[in-house]
Computed example of a mutant assay.
Amino acid sequence: MGSLGASRLIREPLKRGTSLDHLEYVDMTPIIGREYPTAKLKAMLEAPNADEQLRDLAILISERGVVVFRAPQDDLTIDDQKHITDQLGRLTGRPAEHGLHVHPLYNDPNNIPMADGTTDEHIYVINSEAAKKLYATMKDRPGAADEPRDLGREWHSDSLYENAPSDFSFLRMESTPATGGDTLWASGYELYDRLSGPFRRFLETLTATCAQPVFATACAAGGYAVASPRGSPLNVGAAFAPSHPVVRTNPVTGWKSVFAGLGLHVSRIDGVTSYEDALIRDYLLRLLTRNHDGVARLHWTRGACAIWTNVSTLHAATPDTHLVDGIRTGVRASGIGEVPYLDPASTGRREALGLPQY
């Protein structure tokens, strides 16, 4: 670990090795995303250098934002998925006492089981119909019948409402309609790099409250206790309102990223007026939507997997499967990383890689 000086990073960035170089891939865009069309995660786990490959995969995900394994991963067990998700964080310096996240509403009877009929506290089953019941108490739920939905509300990073949020998330799609239900990822690195110098410096002074009161109201309505602890001794109770930096450093890469400045779980920019709060969050959302070259889009196929970093990306599911009478179901595991911080010695991605500013 480096010293806390102006010229030394708090954590030295990790260097990716060559253990994945034998795998065929295509980058989803020049800025974000990589897809492996034929690679099998099970083969990675069974390789003699499994930890080396998983460490390189974690660094690659931290650099590219999201990595997709397109070939059906039918031979991968739930325990394999959990092990991979956990190791990605452990092999890249996550706090030793942190593990896999437990969803706050794990005790809710509306949670559907996995395909084999069992449940696992470290696996969240994503299903659009189940979600409607889980979040029935959410105020101002989008989707009024007489107006279009604001899909800008869909963007988020996983478990931002926790004191120690998620580092890596791993979603495996079990079933999906032939069309619809795509997931998009936006690069927080690129959002930071598209800001002017003065605006970057201003946002670096800010934190945001990341409240999610729906969990407490859902538990109260259902008469059950919120799950606790949730992957870290820091993630306990039902407050769900930490303050996180608007700009964060990814400790794996050493690059700055817009983090808690926009999205579903960000409720308020701290220390500014209500008008300034709305202005900042609206501008950052506009910056995301007007620069779609910083966005990767995945059309899901059965058995495909996506693994992403929540430290430096936001993602959004496209809620359009109702148009084809389809339900998509997937299983997700998420790790818990460190408490977010901004390292003043860190830089943006473009500066670090010697790329042009725009």
Results as ranks from 00 to 15, higher is better:
His101Phe: 14
Leu284Pro: 01
Asn111Asp: 11
Thr329Asn: 06
Glu147Val: 12
Leu314Gly: 05
Thr77Gln: 07
Leu23Ser: 03
Ile123Lys: 00
Ala211His: 05
His83Phe: 15
Gly237Trp: 14
Glu35His: 04
Arg200Asn: 04
His122Tyr: 09
Arg200Lys: 09
Ser166Gly: 11
Leu262Ser: 02
Val246Ala: 00
Val295Arg: 00
Arg8Gly: 12
Ala58Cys: 06
Gly5Ser: 05
Gly231His: 01
Gln81Ala: 14
Ala345Phe: 09
Ala178Met: 13
Ile112Val: 15
Asn310Val: 04
Ser169Val: 14
Thr38Gln: 02
Glu162Ser: 08
Gly271Leu: 14
Gly254His: 00
Asn49Tyr: 08
Asp21Ala: 11
Pro356Tyr: 08
Arg290Lys: 13
Gly188Met: 06
Ser243Leu: 08
Thr176Gln: 05
Thr207Val: 09
Gly223Arg: 04
Leu54His: 02
Ser169Gln: 03
Asp193Gly: 11
Thr347Trp: 10
Arg230Val: 01
Gly326Ile: 10
Ser232Arg: 08
Tyr106Gly: 08
Gly237Asn: 08
Val125Ser: 01
Arg194Asn: 15
Tyr124Gln: 05
Pro356Gly: 07
Thr301Lys: 13
Tyr135Asp: 06
Asp79Val: 09
Gln87Val: 05
Leu134Glu: 04
Gly330His: 01
Ala260Trp: 01
Asp277Met: 04
Leu342Thr: 05
Glu338Thr: 09
Tyr341Trp: 08
Ile336Thr: 11
Ala96Val: 10
Asp277Phe: 09
Arg201Gln: 15
Met173Tyr: 03
Thr77Asn: 07
Leu100Arg: 01
Arg149Ser: 10
Cys305Tyr: 12
Ile269Thr: 08
Trp300Thr: 02
Met138Pro: 06
Leu234Met: 08
Leu91Asp: 02
Thr321Val: 11
